[in-house]
Nucleic acid binder design. Sequence first.
DNA 1: GCCAACGTTGGC
DNA 2: GCCAACGTTGGC
Length: 155
Amino acid sequence: MNYWLVKTEPDMFSWTDLMEAKNQTASWDGVRNYQARNFMRDQFRLGDRVFFYHSRVETPGIVGIAEVVKEGYPDHTALDPKSKYSDEKSIRDGASRWVMVDLKAMKAFPNPVTLNELKNVVALKDMLLVQPGQRLSVQPVSEHHWHLICEMGGL
DNA sequence: GCCAACGTTGGC
DNA sequence: GCCAACGTTGGC
């Protein structure tokens, strides 16, 4: 089983949105970064666990855990001219070059783990998220870091 | 295939 | 809202 972290802007899509979705499941679309896409396309597997991270808020941090319930498939929003995720090159090709997955909410953290807390844990100093300038919206998380952060979050 | 210009991300 | 860091684009 693999562990991941995905960043979301709650204004666009929040943990609450995922919890309130049918079957607590939603597709993870609109990712427009090749490295992030490649992770989803090549390495996301059914049952993988995902940290759900809120960015661009007053207190950024991890708020819950989700599960991959559908592996990578074409992100059709790239082909929709009206979508804010539309992508000219995909439209020109007649095929989406982007990938989405479906996520299901598993557990909210009783104590959401803030970015600030993560930065202050020596054992997490190698975690991608806390590296300066790190902007990747889909990141692998080591098993060790995963368990440590779950404890911090009260799970 | 270099690299300057431009756009985006995301913490603060 | 600012702006540093980073990714992408496109002319050459």
